[in-house]
Simulated assay, not measured.
Amino acid sequence: MTSKVSLLPQDIGSLSRTAPAARPGTLFVLGANGGMSVAPDADFPLMFGRNLPDVHVCVGAADRRVSRRQGLITREASRWVLRNTGKLPIRLPGSRLVLGGNTVELSPGYTPLFIVSTRQEHLLEVRVTASAPRGGGSPASCGADTFDGDAHELSRDERLVLTCLGQRYLRADPHPQPLTWGQVAFEVGELRADERWTAKRAAHIVTLVRHRLSKEYGVAGLLEEEIPPPVGNALNHNLINNLLVTTTLTRADLHQLDQADPRTLDQ
């Protein structure tokens, strides 16, 4: 008999791309050191926070600004409900903040939660298995929310360049900005020593992606004529945010940079 509460290994991969087989309504929560799955009828309140002995899923272990018990997820009236039991706010997609003492319902599908500290935002991944669509079909095939099935196709070069460009976002810096073209070219050149990478080549690749997503998917804010001057980093910022929201880029993409100079990756 399958347990209603199970541990998730640290190496399971991002829940944005990994959808474990489970009955509808099952909750999956994943931190940097592993996580847990809870069946909808388990009657098991899941606690997360900094102090591992006191919680089921650890998040922000090295950041004393994160509460020992930062949040609680419970099953209420056939819905999973998130309650912020800590001091720091919890950020949902779209910049919505759940302040201490407040609650919010979790929608079916994938939801990244960010514990907002002054120095870093700590990612906690959540997935709620959706119900099968009427007329048949498996849970994995149903349309859950905007985070499922919206990832854009990227070539190998595009994924590497965009991961470099947006790595500060992927690493949850509190005030992330895109890298400069020179920094991107340098890092990609370190990884591809047998190829010639310049700032102009990196910029050209990203420009093509921006125009493609604008034309084929109607993504707003990716063209210069859509942004009032001064444009600054707005185009790349908007592009990176779209790639994160659609889970085109996830934390797992940072593995591409593992061979780079560790000094460029430290947080």
Rank of each mutant, 00 (worst) to 15 (best):
S3D: 07
S3N: 14
K4P: 00
L8S: 12
P9I: 07
Q10W: 06
S14Y: 09
S16F: 11
S16V: 10
A22H: 11
A22V: 10
P24Q: 14
A32P: 11
V38A: 04
P40D: 05
F44Y: 15
P45W: 00
M47P: 02
M47F: 05
G49Y: 01
R50D: 09
C58H: 05
V59C: 05
R64T: 15
R65G: 13
R65H: 12
R68H: 11
G71E: 03
R96C: 02
V98S: 08
G100M: 02
N102M: 10
N102Q: 15
E105Q: 12
E105W: 04
P112S: 07
V116M: 13
R127V: 05
A130K: 13
P133E: 15
P133F: 02
R134C: 02
A140N: 13
C142P: 07
T146G: 08
H152T: 08
E153D: 12
E153Q: 12
T163F: 03
Q167P: 01
Y169I: 09
P176R: 08
W181Y: 03
F186N: 07
E190D: 08
I205W: 04
L208D: 09
V209Q: 07
R212M: 11
L222Q: 05
L223W: 06
E224R: 14
N236T: 08
I240M: 02
V245S: 11
T248D: 14
D266E: 13
